[in-house]
């Protein structure tokens, strides 16, 4: 457990020392969402209608943006091999790295989302649900993305390949994330959607590290 905590702290410290990572992801998120009014026009009704979807889709892309560096640095400087040899199982290493990744990129996305909802004139009823849904959904994004990041380690054109592999797997999170917000705005029950999002996360916590660790092992062989 101590080793786990240390690993998370190490990753966080690395991310903060280099800075930039979280800022870049949030910057991309905000800028891309801001492009939409230019694309579809500034009418508040249209923006309100598509707001939840735009925020979620952009959040997926922003999360994807930072994924290809999840393991690359450790892989290239050899610390990944040391981590694999450490007494901590590789699956736990993966969870720790995902947790750090989520704190650095997922959490800022959640915090930036209400601001963007404001820009897009989202109905006030949607705000709390949007935040809740993103809190439940973004960890799944980090976890699922970790599989792709591990699989594409050392591949040619890893970044583009990563998006091809991972975006289809993000569809369920997108569907239920948007549905929760739209249900809340429409005055319907949004609990089932949030529960399904939570179920995705709970399923991803054991399954994704399993696959990711397997992929990392074969990359290190």
């Amino acid at each position: 457990m101590r080793a786990f905590r240390l690993l998370v702290q190490r990753d966080l410290r690395l991310a903060f020392r280099q800075g930039g990572d979280a800022a870049m992801v949030v910057g991309f998120f905000v800028l891309t969402v801001i492009l939409f009014p230019f694309g579809v026009g500034p009418e508040p009704e249209i923006l309100a209608r598509i707001g939840a979807g735009v925020i979620w889709v952009t959040a997926l892309l922003a999360a994807l943006l930072s994924l290809d560096r999840l393991f690359t640095a450790d892989y290239e400087d050899g610390s990944l091999e040391i981590l694999a040899l450490s007494p901590l199982p590789l699956e736990a290493v993966v969870v720790a790295k995902c947790l750090a990744h989520w704190i650095v990129t997922g959490l800022p996305l959640v915090l930036a989302a209400p601001l963007l909802a404001l820009f897009l004139n989202l109905d006030a009823a949607g705000y709390p649900v949007l935040i809740l849904a993103m809190l439940l959904g973004t960890p799944s994004l980090s976890l699922i993305g970790a599989v792709g990041a591990a699989l594409t380690l050392g591949a040619r054109r890893g970044g583009v390949l990563l998006s091809l592999l991972i975006l289809p797997l993000y569809i369920p999170v997108l569907i239920f994330g948007v549905a929760a917000v739209e249900a809340a705005i429409g005055g319907l029950s949004f609990r089932p959607h949030l529960m399904i999002l939570g179920a995705f996360m709970l399923a991803a916590i054991p399954l994704s590290p399993l696959a990711t660790a397997a992929a990392l092992r074969q990359a290190l062989e």
């Binding site: 594409t152 040619r156 890893g158 390949l161 696959a211 992929a215 074969q218 062989e221």
Partner: peptide, 18 residues
């Protein structure tokens, strides 16, 4: 795409299987 993305064919095969 993943299977063909590696210089070593065995790595591509293993990654593709996962």
């Amino acid at each position: 795409a993943l299977v063909n993305a590696f210089d070593e064919p065995t790595r591509g095969a293993r990654a593709g299987a996962i």
